[in-house]
Simulated assay, not measured.
Amino acid sequence: MSEKNISELRKKRKMHSDLLEVAIVLAFIFLIISIYVPRAIWDEEEYFENQSRFHMENMYDVQNFYNSLLEEYNPDGLWVMKVVNSVRDSLTGDSTYLGEQPITLNGKSFTVNVPKGFDVDFDTTFGFPMTRRDTIMDTTMTIVMFSEDLSRNDTIYIQKKRLDHFQADSNFVALLEEVGSERVEVVSYYDSYMPDSSMYFCPVTEKPYLFSIKDEGNIIRVDSPIEETIVRNRYAIFAFKAGNHGFIDDGSKSWDR
C-alpha cells in the first residue's frame, strides 16, 4: 500500500473518530435535555395548577366574606372583591366600622352589615401563618416589701416596669438590686395580603373563573375555566399541558377528594 493511500486512510479514520466524538457529545446533550427539560415542564405544570387552585380558594373565600356582609353571593367576582376589600380598608382606618354601614363604590350606594371580628377573620384567611424570634430585654428588680401576713420584711422580684407601682405602696422598704436579662420569644403571626384582580383570572388561560350560585342562593361554586386540555410546545419536541384545575363546591375542593 502506497504512502498516499495510507495517508488518506488515516485521514478517513480521524474524520470518523471526530464524527463519533461529535455524535457522543450530541447524544450526551440530548440525554441531559431529555432528563431535565421534562422535569422543568412538569414543575411548570404543577406551579400553574397550584397557582390556579390558590386563586380559586381566594375567590371562594372572597365570596363568603361578601355573603357575610350582604347575605348573598354575586357572580361578578371583581365586584365582590372590591366590596370586601373596601370594607377591610375601612376597618383599618376605623375599628368601630361595624354593624350596618353605608358604602359607595363605582357610583353605587348600598348598606353592608359588618360582623364583629371581620378584620381578624380576613387577615387570617388571606394570610400565611409565620413565626419569628424576638429578643426581649427584661430588667428584674429585687425589692424589699413589708409583709403584713408575715409581720416582717420580704424580698421579692419584679419587672422594672412595675417598680413605680410598688414604690407607691406604703409597705415598700427598699430597692436592693437591678439585673438585666435577655430572652428569646417565639411569636406567631399572619403575613396578610389583599386579594387582587389577578386572582379572578386563571393563570394559564387568563380567563375569569366561573361562578355558579345554587340552592336558592345559599351555595356558591367556583370552577376552572379550562374546558379542554391546553397543549403548548416547548423546545420543539416537548409540550406543556394543562388540564382542568378542578372546582370548589360549597367548600368542598375537587382536588381533595
Rank of each mutant, 00 (worst) to 15 (best):
K14N: 12
H16S: 03
S17I: 06
S17K: 14
D18L: 13
L19A: 07
L20H: 12
E21V: 14
E21N: 15
E21S: 15
V22C: 07
I24Y: 15
V25H: 09
L26V: 13
I29G: 06
I32N: 11
I33G: 07
I33C: 11
S34I: 06
I35H: 11
Y36N: 03
P38T: 07
P38F: 15
R39L: 03
R39H: 01
A40H: 04
I41K: 06
Y47W: 01
Y47S: 02
E49L: 15
E49K: 02
N50C: 08
N50T: 05
S52D: 14
S52M: 10
R53Q: 15
H55G: 00
H55C: 02
H55N: 09
M56K: 01
N58K: 05
Y60I: 04
N64L: 08
N64K: 00
N64M: 11
Y66V: 12
N67E: 15
S68M: 10
S68E: 00
E71H: 10
E71D: 12
E72R: 10
Y73E: 04
P75I: 02
D76S: 05
G77A: 13
G77E: 07
G77L: 15
L78W: 05
W79E: 14
W79P: 01
V80H: 10
V80S: 10
V80T: 13
V83H: 08
V84E: 02
T92W: 09
G93I: 07
T96H: 00
T96Q: 04
T96P: 00
Y97N: 08
Y97Q: 09
L98S: 15
G99C: 05
G99Q: 01
G99M: 01
G99W: 00
E100L: 03
E100S: 12
Q101A: 03
T104W: 08
T104S: 11
N106C: 03
G107R: 03
K108M: 12
V112M: 05
K116T: 02
F118L: 08
D119P: 04
V120N: 09
F122V: 01
D123L: 11
T125S: 06
F126R: 10
F128R: 04
T131C: 01
T131D: 05
T131N: 11
R132Y: 12
R133W: 12
D134T: 11
D134Y: 15
D138A: 01
T140V: 12
T140H: 10
M141Y: 10
M141K: 14
T142D: 06
I143M: 03
M145T: 14
D149W: 02
D149R: 09
D149I: 08
